[in-house]
């Protein structure tokens, strides 16, 4: 195992031994399963409700878990000085940062996969239809979490865990509303508001672009091109955030 893999793998191991991750993972599974108890099976929109609720639960719980985990990835290491023993080894700070992100994304991939499995088995159990769009929505969620994680890492490269978590939460909501704000601003009479809406739209990642949950709920299809461009969009934003984080992180003092 080389240094990068060892660090990334250790991040995954950390998450497995972290009570918060385990508890949240278990909690999400329980919530997913409980939907079957409260939903009236006779409703003819049953498939829709199940998909909507299942994917919605996954995305909300995992988004907040991601905010919690990623906003501490660097800052907690600096606060606890665990970072001294890592960056004093023959690895660059950039490698360390990217390995932390990779470890986090591995953890989130496992969680998304596990919850998707629970969700699908639930669909099977009730004979509801399994569509490719449901899988696309789960994959899209992972790319959304990638953008969130890299934003969390960016904030935690220069501020403490609490401030990073607040900023990342803000970005999460703004990122989902940016598209709406753009639309609303377009109809404004005020050119200033119009410009502001457009600026916000371009400086913030539009997280709705990776959100295929509504399409899954209404059993619409997503063509490969649309999904790939959304994935590329997510990767591009993650790359931008990571590059800025690296720039800051390479230059700062660890005291």
């Amino acid at each position: 195992m080389n240094a990068f893999t060892a660090m990334a793998w250790n991040g995954f191991r950390e998450a497995r031994r972290n009570k918060v991750t385990v508890v949240v993972g278990a909690f999400a599974s329980v919530v997913l399963l409980s939907s079957t108890l409260v939903t009236d099976v006779t409703v003819n929109t049953f498939d829709r409700v199940l998909t909507d609720f299942g994917l919605g639960t996954m995305s909300l719980i995992l988004a907040f878990l991601t905010i919690f985990l990623s906003s501490g990835l660097l800052s907690r290491e600096i606060e606890r000085r665990t970072i001294f023993l890592m960056v004093s080894k023959p690895v660059s700070r950039t490698q360390f940062l990217v390995a932390r992100l990779a470890g986090n994304m591995l953890t989130l991939a496992v969680l998304v996969a596990a919850m998707t499995l629970i969700f699908l088995s639930q669909l099977l159990m009730f004979g509801a239809a399994i569509t490719s769009t449901q899988l696309v929505a789960a994959a899209g969620l992972w790319f959304e979490l990638l953008v969130l994680s890299s934003a969390g890492i960016l904030f935690s490269s220069f501020s403490g865990p609490a401030v990073s978590a607040i900023c990342t939460t803000g970005l999460y909501f703004a990122g989902h509303l940016a598209g709406d704000m753009y639309e609303i601003a377009k109809y404004s009479e005020n050119p200033l508001v119009q410009t502001l809406g457009r600026v916000l739209y371009y400086v913030l990642p539009n997280l709705e672009r990776m959100n295929f949950r509504p399409r899954a709920t209404y059993a619409l299809t997503v063509d490969a091109g649309t999904f790939l461009s959304a994935a590329a969009y997510g990767v591009a934003w993650a790359a931008i955030f990571t590059a800025i984080a690296v720039f800051i992180f390479e230059r700062r003092d660890f005291r």
Binding site: N2, R13, E14, F84, P90
Partner: peptide, 26 residues
């Protein structure tokens, strides 16, 4: 390098930590 008041990852065992350090040292 041995820092002042060293703080290795406390969720690892001693052996796991030294092994991780070894991987990082190549």
């Amino acid at each position: 390098f041995l820092p002042e008041n060293p703080s290795p990852y406390d969720y690892l065992t001693g052996r796991e930590f030294v092994t991780l350090a070894g991987h990082l040292s190549g």
